[in-house]
């Protein structure tokens, strides 16, 4: 149904990205670049549905982004145009499917989205398609000494809740460069599951931690995430690493300045004495000369 192809070493895939790729460009000419568009579906914590397309081509086993090309986004099997977005410097085009937009689901309750790059004289055209089912992910954080993340996920079919049993939800904490995995929960028959959260994780200076629970690259649901901010972390003390006076800081340790001052004032004081002696000799000599004159 869906062709999944992992492209070469793109190591950091953007946060919670679903990855369905279709290679295209059938009648390619010799010089023409054969690009790839990858389309990802994300339902974020605010229930916004976002389509995320990346246009790249492969050269010397490196993925090179194509900037400044229009990507058209479509919804439904009938390819109803949503909008068209120009790729940025990373080859990314993003569009939000507003809540007011009507989405036609097929008989299995699946939504289909697709994206298309039309191509030009030097670059081939290509398209990508994702099919997802809407899912509702509920997260509750409980406990004090033992902290528990409780998860429940279900989809709605004809107004009835259908538990997402057997599916895997990942729990993590976003950090500066990547997400720190905390654990994975396989949902039980009722679509629920829980996870004990470690109590020794550093948070920000107030102890706040961001906890993300998500379906990641789920073949049915795509990317669906829920974000919670909670005071479950250990407050970080940011003052520690800065030392004011040390060998390697801008300002020298006090003893150094004091020692140097004592040494220098001692030596230069004596120099001053010697120079004053010279002046005294000169004054004395002047006096003598004047006396001689008078005589």
């Amino acid at each position: 149904m869906i062709e999944i192809k992992k492209t070469l070493p793109i190591r950091i895939i953007l946060l919670s990205a679903l990855f369905f790729t279709t290679l295209c460009g059938l009648a390619q000419e010799k010089e023409k670049i054969t690009p790839t568009v990858t389309l990802q579906y994300l339902k974020n914590s605010e229930d916004q549905r976002i389509l995320h397309a990346v246009l790249t081509y492969s050269k010397d086993r490196m993925e090179i982004p194509l900037q400044g090309f229009g990507i058209s986004f479509f919804k439904g099997t009938g390819k109803e145009l949503v909008t068209s977005v120009v790729t940025d410097s990373k080859g990314i085009a993003t569009v939000e499917i507003g809540k007011d937009q009507k989405l036609a689901s097929d008989s299995k309750g699946m939504w289909t989205f697709s994206s298309e790059f039309k191509g030009n004289d030097t670059i081939d055209a290509c398209t990508a398609e994702v099919t997802v089912k809407d899912v509702i992910l509920e997260v509750s954080l409980t406990g004090d000494s033992i902290r528990t993340v409780t998860l429940r996920a279900f989809s709605l079919e004809n107004g009835k809740e259908v538990p997402a049993k057997g599916e895997v939800v990942k729990v993590g904490v976003p950090r500066m460069f990547s997400q720190l995995p905390i654990g994975e929960v396989t949902l039980d028959d009722s679509g629920s599951g829980s996870l004990e959260f470690p109590s020794d994780l550093p948070g920000d200076k107030d102890g706040n931690l961001t906890i993300i629970a998500k379906f990641e690259e789920n073949p049915t649901f795509g990317n669906v995430e829920k974000i919670n901010i909670v005071k479950w972390g250990i407050p970080s003390d940011y003052t520690k690493p800065t030392v004011h006076r040390a060998l390697w800081t801008k300002v020298a340790p006090r003893w150094m300045i004091i020692t140097l001052t004592i040494l220098l004032s001692g030596v230069w004081g004596h120099y001053l004495y010697a120079v004053i002696s010279l002046v005294r000799i000169r004054i004395d000599a002047r006096k003598k000369e004047k006396e001689e004159h008078r005589l």
Partner: peptide, 10 residues
């Protein structure tokens, strides 16, 4: 943050 990553693994 007590976290290190090589891009793939954290």
């Amino acid at each position: 943050e007590d976290t290190v990553t090589n891009g793939n693994e954290t």
